[in-house]
Design a protein around this nucleic acid. Structure first.
Length: 486
RNA sequence: GGUUACGUGGCCGAGUGGCUAGGCAGUGGUCUGCAACACCAUCUACGGCGGUUCGAAUCCGUCCGUAACCUCCA
């Protein structure tokens, strides 16, 4: 079938037909997290959205190289010359080496994304592993005259760049507006203009993370790592660059400028931005503390939600909104998704038992085509889910004898509904055998056994202990009560 | 203040110049020892005011409201 994929490109503010630079090969770069604290659900939304995009591209048959960085070099907490970087600060607070902080939160990040059933990217490079590349790019930009050295630091000359290129093309900003809107911050005297951004920063005496360079012992500017790593692994020009909306300006704008200044080419063909996840109508953000951690949501150990939610339910909930829309988090909305998710999964489980007929009572091919059409329209997962529910209704009708399906159509529908649900949306059946379900279950069993013992019904009490033991669970009676273990 | 989005039924959330989004909740049924689950059917809509049009919730203007970015943030 013909599959024309349309992607909303932030650069043109329009949906554009997707044509990879190299036939069948796709290069995709997504800005990863700064690993100085736990990832919150807002962060997760972006990575789950791009995971689905990655999955669909592969499902269409593209060979995708998906690069997502880990920002493990400390960056300053604000734009002032002096200040502490986030990772060093956290290291001091927790009395750890900066790299211990990095390791801890990187592992946590991976664990959470695995719970959401995200596929790992093809390459996950770190900023500290690419200091040399960043220094090389800085040299190139200096050589081409788009940067200047000042007191051991190197800054990108935005106004110079803007003479020949268009700084602000991605975010729709004009350089004059930016200048007039800039407040004068203390200690910015090193820069020619407040718009200029650091390519290399000289380290202050107490800055822990530091590397030698031709200009000073220091550390790279925040925007530079993405340019260095995307260029290294995807080339001077690549297909898709993604990230959260909040990175559009200045981060991605600066990346375009750095790429263009160092290679003479615009680095990215399609810029994609995911919208914010909100809590109480406000953006989830580490700095404001308006956050919810995935673990808190999975365990139910939080004040905001009524009960725990399985990662697959949360993923399904996110898929019910388009990636470019703001999505608000609430118990009420999650509950609705949980029921919908179960309904979809039940129908898929019922699939093998359906009776096949000689004819189908609906046009199965066009229903299946609509799965593709939804995703081809800028990865419209909510429409896809609506179409999947159409299939669910059809499946239930067949079960009730109110509709029929032919053998061929059955094979087609089974194949596509499972492919789109599991391979594309990245959902999965909830494994009911994990300990989270055992815990409340054992509580009930122990309560019943306690009752039996109280009634001196030791036959029942022993029966329970023996049978549970056969199932691999040991019950221990202690003075404080009974406990269990696997 | 500047820039950019958005405002859809009880809730969440798509889409669109005229043809049912979908999920949840509600209501009525089927099933069931009772209940829950599941399944079937079904109601409520496009922020206010103008304009363009045969026709707009969909285009334009304006007003009101909300959010994001302009400082680190997915």
């Amino acid at each position: 079938m013909t599959n024309t994929l349309y992607i909303y490109n932030t650069l043109s503010a329009n949906k554009e037909e997707f044509k990879p630079l190299n036939k069948d090969l796709v290069g995709m770069y997504v800005c990863g997290p700064t690993v100085y604290s736990d990832v919150h659900l807002g962060n997760c939304r972006t990575f789950i959205s791009f995971d689905t995009i990655y999955r669909y591209l592969m499902y269409l048959g593209y060979k995708v190289r998906y690069v997502r960085n880990i920002t493990d070099a400390g960056h300053l907490e604000n734009d002032a010359d002096e200040g502490e970087d986030k990772i060093s600060k956290k290291a001091r607070l927790e009395q750890l080496e900066p790299m211990e902080i990095v390791q801890k939160y990187t592992l946590g990040f991976h664990k959470v994304l695995r719970a959401f059933n995200n596929l790992p990217p093809s390459i996950e490079p770190t900023a500290t592993g690419h200091i040399i590349e960043q220094i090389e790019i800085t040299k190139k930009i200096l050589d081409k005259g788009f940067a200047y050295e000042s007191n051991g630091s190197v800054y990108f000359d935005v106004e110079k760049y803007n003479q020949t290129e268009n700084y602000g093309e991605l975010s729709g900003r004009k350089i004059e507006d930016l200048i007039s809107g800039t407040r004068a911050l203390d200690g910015q005297s090193e820069k020619k203009s407040p718009l200029d951004f650091a390519l290399w920063k000289k380290a202050s005496p107490y800055h822990i993370m530091r590397w030698p360079s031709p200009w000073s012992v220091g550390f790279p500017g925040w925007h530079l790592e993405c340019t260095a790593m995307s260029t290294k692994y995807l080339g001077k020009q690549f297909d898709i660059h993604g990230g959260g909306m909040d990175l559009k300006f200045p981060h991605h704008e600066c990346e375009i400028a750095q790429g263009c200044a160092s290679t003479g080419k615009k680095p990215v063909k399609y810029w994609m931005h995911t919208n914010m996840l909100t809590l109480n109508g406000k953006k989830m953000s580490k700095s404001t503390g308006n956050t919810l951690l995935p673990e808190e949501l999975f365990s139910g150990n939080n004040k905001l939600m009524d009960k725990p939610y399985h990662p697959m339910v949360v993923r399904f909930f996110m898929m019910q909104a388009h990636y470019r829309s703001v999505l608000d988090f609430s118990s009420e909305a999650l509950n609705a998704s949980e029921k919908g998710f179960n309904k979809l999964m039940t129908a898929i489980k019922d699939l093998p038992q359906l009776t096949k007929s000689t004819q189908s009572s609906i046009d199965v091919q066009s229903l299946v085509d609509s799965f593709y059409q939804s995703m081809n329209d800028d990865f419209n997962t909510p429409i896809l889910i609506a179409k999947l529910f159409e299939a669910v209704k059809y499946i239930n009708h067949i079960k009730d004898g109110k509709a029929t399906i032919s053998k061929n159509d059955f094979d087609l529908l089974s194949d596509k509904i499972t492919a789109f649900t599991f391979d594309v949306l990245g959902l999965n059946f909830i494994d009911k055998t994990d300990e989270s379900i055992l815990e409340p279950l054992m509580k009930i069993i122990l309560t019943l056994r306690k009752q039996a013992k109280k009634n001196k019904d030791y036959t029942t009490a022993d029966y329970i202990r023996d049978k549970v033991s056969e199932a691999g669970i040991t019950i221990k009676d202690t003075r404080e009560g009974s406990t269990w273990s696997l």
